[in-house]
Design a binder for these strands. Structure first.
Lengths: 220, 220
DNA sequence: CATCTATTCAATGATTTTGTAGAATAGTAG
DNA sequence: CTACTATTCTACAAAATCATTGAATAGATG
């Protein structure tokens, strides 16, 4: 049997990473882990899969060195191993939106009132926050906010938004964000706020994007 | 049978791209295509595989919208479909070097005299070129140079280097580059030059990286 | 030490992927 | 229209992947 050439070995090594990314469930796991570390059981609920299968997928990711583990009591906690992985996932998402009309369509179809739903990016947020009075709210579950959030953002989980609308200062534009481009919680949040006649818009970027861009969002 | 949720559909779409990347030969194809467009037959030689198999891999890449085709006479010419693909491949390579000691080791083992082989990045090149007299040479085959090259670079294919050493201006440091971090032609070039007592070093970045960074290399 | 429990391992069938050889195709060139 | 040729398609056997169930494990808890 012929031995592998240098080139073949290198590409085989590189394909360890891409192979680990090649499965939809594993992509979803990485996307979820980009926001916060989780135990196997929690992840299995998030991706609607048996614990055993989830564990197997996680081990594939671990073998590819894309995630780390640590023990906490009885639980094993999985987390993204470093920023180069966040970057990879982010580039994949970006390419998905650019090239697969389907992805864009799927997300847009979900929005109940597409035309009225203004959506901005991190950069636009920073620009606008200098001219306009803006309040940034993080509508993810509180735990994820606690694990890390965009600077100056206030935590109001989607589930509590209706009750807590009165906490929002009058006269400011509300910008809602959640887990990133693929997450639709912020869409729901904006719709709720609009129902209460509050000027609101969605930011597509989430905590991951902010962290990668390392930009400081200056308070207005 | 239960219908797929929105999330599942989105991640399935995204996995089209990562799945296409998950095979070593397809990664190699994308890496080669990052430098220049090629016909199927040429590519099949480059990756040492039957024409039929090469064609199949290319069709997977095309289905995932990572490459485009056009006809030229009897040949079908494949090319990278856009910059977001270059970015993806570049991020994968980068992650490979960071996380898989193997990749780094494989490339380094190839270098005949590792300690003496200074290696720089695009950024360092730009910095150094302001202080030092530097000449940048592109040691890829001439066709690839013609299809696109780093600004101010001179084409001296590796195969012609020995004969053409005299063309190099005296007193300047020679920086050699080829297809990028995974390519070892520049390593050979540096070793040849050192054998002739010429101060030479390798740049790890190639044309792709330069193009992505969109930076102008100012002539010294 | 014994119990409990989150996670991992092992075995299983169904499905998908791989690479190749040989046939078919589509478009060029004469 | 005919010959030619680069590419793609087909069929196939070997190998790998996938999700699940049920058993095993490792470590915490009492």
């Amino acid at each position: 049997m012929p031995t592998e050439t240098l080139k073949e070995q290198v590409y085989r090594e590189l394909s360890r990473a891409t192979h680990a990314l090649s499965n939809p469930k594993r992509l979803e796991l990485l996307d979820i882990l980009s926001n916060k570390e989780w135990s196997v059981e929690e992840l299995s609920k998030e991706i609607s899969m048996s614990v055993a299968s989830t564990s197997q997928h996680l081990q594939v990711l671990k073998l590819a060195k894309l995630v780390n583990t640590r023990r906490e009591g009885n639980f094993i906690i999985y987390s993204i191993s470093d920023d180069s992985v966040l970057r990879l996932v982010s580039v994949v998402r970006d390419l998905g939106f650019r090239k697969y009309a389907e992805v864009d369509k799927l997300i847009n179809d979900f929005k109940s009132d597409k035309k009225d739903l203004e959506s901005i990016t991190l950069e636009t947020l920073i620009t606008r926050s200098k001219k306009e009075k803006i309040i940034l709210i993080d509508v993810r579950p509180e735990e994820e906010y606690n694990a890390g959030h965009i600077e100056h953002a206030v935590s109001i989980p989607l589930s509590q938004l209706k009750k807590r609308v009165h906490e929002l200062p009058k006269g400011k534009t509300v910008v809602a964000y959640c887990r990133g481009p693929l997450c639709v919680m912020a869409v729901d949040a904006v719709n709720i706020l609009k129902g209460k006649n509050i000027k609101a818009l969605r930011m597509e970027d989430g905590y991951t994007e902010w962290k990668l861009k390392q930009k400081v969002f200056s308070k207005n």
